[in-house]
Nucleic acid binder design. Structure first.
Length: 659
DNA sequence: TTAGGGTTAG
């Protein structure tokens, strides 16, 4: 096939838009020699296009078919492999190619350096040393590679031995130093560089924010941002600053920056050339208000926006979902022209949060394309609302659908297994976790909880012991496992070991520790631990800690001391605390304290029949039948007690105790 | 082929 020169020229002109057209015209089955194609530029572009669109096999076919390749052809093919980190394949081509130019060398170096790891960095350096002629890009690539790998001094050595540095070199040094936390040096470089561009400023601002130096970032942005010569992408730096303040909860500061952007726009000569706020600025500011819980201001900005994008809508919807105000969210949802998975997922999460699983499921069903987060949201929704079997069924459905679970899915489903005491599935998930190599700390913690809730306390302990890295939650989970199964000694031993390992306990730790003491009747130990909360760890005791202490002191017979403790509490005791005193009074059949506790409970929780029932039993056991009858009458008069003495859920230990 | 940025949902 032979194409006329003019046709080829016309086609070449449109090449960059539609390279496939040329291919179709020429037919791709024939050998692509220079006789059928005047030069290989066209084919090189075709290869580049195929690589850009991820069709490397196709690219390889074209590459192999070309008879007379030039250096660009080889480089294009090498690019394809380098992008996919296939360095062995890239290297083979590089070694085979008849003539290399500086781009070939640079490509290989950048490929090796992107792979990270000492071996690859050294390989890159070897090529850098071997190459006959280096340009600035070679140097910049090598410096960036070192900085990415944390080798700051190597980078600095190269930088200092460079003769002709360009702005990219300086910028690479700035961002690299900031990435490695060498802040002072980065600022020094920024301030001493011969010419700055907007990238320099963006790099230094975002890097400083990343390193917690937001005020310095703001100062530099104000100082250098107002000067001439910076391009429109400076707004990115302002946006980064808004996001930085937003993350720290400094709403007013963020708003000040947000309002400042058009101010500098007036200062700059090219008004309307991009110095103004863009949609990202608005979205970040709205997000800032949402994060601070100021939905009114967030909505105000949202309503003022002229060009909203999907992120604007999703941000404001997430604000309503977080409150949660699902009516508002639905209203916005209905007004949206285009929705994406994030929109739908936010709605699902919101409905799950307010316990409306029907609507959550309906939205889950209705959404056009579910992703992993959709599944995770609906599964965790059911799990959090104690619908464990639904959660487990959805998990099975998810897998049948070919969706691979991640650590969020597994953590939800493990909680589901713990909730429904499904040891069989829990152990299966454990195997899956091992296979998927998602052995991260939160997942392992869920496994501990799952095993211990299912009563497999030995498996829980094995899990705990095998964890290479633990956090305080791992310790809490294991201690809680022991405590809730009556292994008080083991719980306290582990707690002592935890302190030896210098892991700082939390309020949750003490909840389990005190509950273990209460269940086992270790009153003195319990008092000691309770006092150590504030004195050793600066943790203020919460309601559940007081109620445990009241429980154990009361049950040991020191009812007066228990009442004294209640009176000395820094906040109003709730029904769990009074319930503990009432329970203890029942154990000792003590009318005096039983009455006090029961009366407090009747005021706090007028619906509950439990205080009447307990008080009745105390009187009855003491043979004071008249008083017992009075209690019954009182209960009838107050219109409580359809199920007499049936369910008492006020005490933290209600499951393990019978009244 | 080198530098910055890339918002929203767990």
């Amino acid at each position: 096939m032979r194409a006329s020169k003019s046709v080829l020229a016309a086609l070449r002109k449109t090449m960059s838009y539609n390279p496939m057209a040329l291919c179709r015209f020429l037919g791709s089955s024939t050998a692509l020699s220079s006789s059928s194609s005047p030069d290989c530029t066209v084919w090189n572009k075709k290869i580049s296009h195929l690589i850009r669109t991820g069709q490397i096999e196709e690219a390889k076919k074209v590459f192999n078919a070309i008879e007379h390749k030039n250096t660009v052809t080889w480089n294009a093919m090498i690019t394809g492999h380098v992008k996919r980190r296939e360095m062995a394949k890239a290297r083979k081509l590089f070694d085979e190619m008849p003539e290399r130019d500086v781009v070939s060398w640079n490509l290989m170096i950048s490929g090796y350096l992107s792979c990270r790891g000492v071996r690859f960095v050294e390989e890159g350096r070897l090529l850098f040393d071997q190459m006959p002629v280096r340009d600035t890009i070679s140097w910049n690539t090598m410096i960036t590679g070192y900085l990415r790998d944390g080798r700051v001094s190597d980078a600095l050595r190269l930088f200092e031995s460079m003769i002709e540095r360009d702005v990219v070199t300086w910028n690479a040094m700035i961002s690299g130093f900031l990435q490695n936390g060498v802040i002072a040096k980065a600022i020094e470089i920024f301030e001493s560089m011969p010419e700055r561009d907007s990238t320099s400023l963006c790099a230094v601002v975002s890097g400083l924010i990343h390193n917690g130096r937001i005020d310095k970032a703001a100062k530099l942005l104000v100082e250098f941002g107002a000067k001439d010569g910076y391009s429109e992408n400076l707004v990115n730096a302002y946006n980064a600053l808004i996001a930085g303040y937003s993350q720290r909860g400094q709403v007013d500061e963020a708003r000040r920056v947000f309002d400042q952007i058009p101010y500098f726009c007036d200062q700059g000569k090219r008004r309307g050339m991009g110095f103004e706020k863009n949609v990202v600025s608005w979205n970040k500011m709205i997000k800032c208000y949402v994060k601070a819980g100021d939905l009114i201001s967030a909505r105000g900005l949202f309503d003022q926006m002229i060009d909203r994008d999907i992120v604007s809508w999703n941000t404001i919807i997430s604000g309503y979902v977080q409150v949660p105000n699902m009516e508002g969210a639905i209203d916005l949802f209905n007004r949206m022209l285009y929705r994406d998975a994030i929109t739908w997922n936010s709605m699902i999460m919101g409905f799950a949060e307010v316990g409306n699983l029907e609507l959550a499921y309906e939205f889950f069903q209705r959404m056009p394309q579910r992703n992993l987060i959709s599944w995770n949201s609906i599964i965790s929704g059911y799990e959090k609302n104690s619908e464990y079997d639904w959660a487990i069924n959805l998990y099975l459905e998810m897998q049948a659908d070919g969706m691979k679970p991640d650590q969020h899915t597994l953590s939800s489903i493990l909680s589901g297994c713990a909730g429904s005491v499904n040891l069989l599935l829990g152990a299966q998930i454990h195997q899956q976790v091992t296979k998927l190599v998602i052995g991260d700390v939160p997942i392992n913690n869920s496994l501990i909880t799952m095993y211990s809730r299912c009563g497999a306390i030995l498996e829980a302990r094995t899990m705990f012991d095998e964890m290479k890295t633990k956090d305080v939650i791992s310790w809490n989970a294991m201690i809680a496992g022991y405590a809730s199964h009556g292994y008080a000694t083991e719980a306290l031993q582990l707690f002592e070991f935890m302190k030896q390992q210098h892991v700082k306990p939390t309020q949750v730790t003490f909840t389990s520790v005190l509950s273990a003491c209460a269940n086992a009747g270790f009153t003195e130990a319990g008092k000691y631990y309770f006092n150590s909360m504030a004195s050793q760890f600066r943790i203020s005791p919460r309601m559940e800690h007081f109620s445990s202490l009241v429980d154990m002191i009361g049950r040991s017979g020191q009812l007066q001391e228990a009442l004294h403790l209640i009176k000395s509490m820094p906040f109003q005791p709730d029904k769990t605390v009074w319930g503990a005193l009432l329970g203890a009074s029942r154990v000792h059949n003590n009318v005096t304290y039983g009455r006090i506790a029961a009366e407090a409970l009747m005021t706090l929780d007028p619906e509950s029949s439990a205080p009447y029932a307990l008080l009745y039993n105390i009187y009855a056991d003491l043979g004071q039948l008249n008083e017992a009858a009075e209690v019954k009458m009182l209960m009838r008069r107050n219109n409580v007690g359809k199920h007499v003495a049936a369910s008492w859920v006020g005490s933290p230990h209600s499951e393990t105790r019978t009244f």
